[in-house]
Amino acid sequence: MAETENDPASLLQYFRRYGTLTCFMLLLLGFWLLLPDTFMTGRNIFNVTQQMSMLAVVAFAMTIVMAMGDFDLSVGSMASLAGIVAAVVFRETGLVPLGIGLALLAGLIGGVLNGFLVSYVGILPFVATLGTLTVFSGAAFLASGGKTIFGADIPEAFGVFARGGIPLWQSGEITVILPNLTIIAVLTLAIVWFVLEKMVFGRHLYAMGGNAEAARLAGIPVKRLRLMAYAAAGLGAALAGLMYASRVASANPTQGSGLMLDAIAAVFLGMTISRNGEPRVLNTLIGVLLLGVLSNGLTQLSVDSYVRDIIVGVIIIAAVAASSLDKINRN
């Protein structure tokens, strides 16, 4: 112990492995001490999970693609597009299931398009999904006429869903509920976790992320799996877009665009916790919660909203820097 204490390499290693987690724990502890009455309450915790549910679903979907070492930059505009598709269907037909079904279908088609471009045409993921980002965004503007679809065009049931949940217990005059959006996020987490950690499909994705060429030579159907991974990401993005549209009871052609960078940030934060720096969906969850807790706690402390962005950026850079320096050290 006394020896390792002064060894900079082991300190770095510690930070690489546990820096993000330590940071998360300190944030929880700090906010709890500073906000003794309102932070660590059942209501606030469910509140945070509800607020982060949309980002969580996008980040889980992003984890699938990043497991292969790829990116999907189009998830944010796909989320916007899915919301618009649903809202336009609602406006024209008033049918909630049809709107949801077509929005998810749009996500699946968009994801397959991404996968096809990357896998079969051989375009770099960054370039291919940057292209489809623009296409999806343009389609969302085209379908909506650039306007926000809201009010009577959105069926009551769709908007009410995001406000509802399963009542759990009574806290004073307020009933604490398990929000519907949180339930969707948890189900998504369970599915993605099962697919990535328990199925051959997931193991193959990580093998491709380690070395795509070796994976191909080992007989893994690299192209087909890559297509499926992007399709799943598109579907996840569309689901998040629907959750967002339900929460704001409206659809706007740009409303999902903020999700993409936050999702990548969450996966990166999660990667800093993994043993070998690979994206694991449970670690992504910690990344998402860290971002959510930070926003919630700092708002409650009345810290300027722009300070929050700086802190988030600094944490990401510090966490990734520790990992990078550790690698240099080991070499």
């Binding site: 906000l35 509140n47 607020q51 704001v248 409303q255 903020g258 708002t299 909203s305």
Partner: peptide
């Protein structure tokens, strides 16, 4: 008064989240 101005930069869902936080904070 102690005023906290929160700008969610075009993000309406984030505005909901911040309203919930402020409500929680009483």
């Amino acid at each position: 008064w102690e005023v906290n101005v929160v700008d969610t930069k075009g993000d309406v869902a984030a505005a909901i989240a911040r309203i919930e936080d402020a409500a929680n904070q009483k």
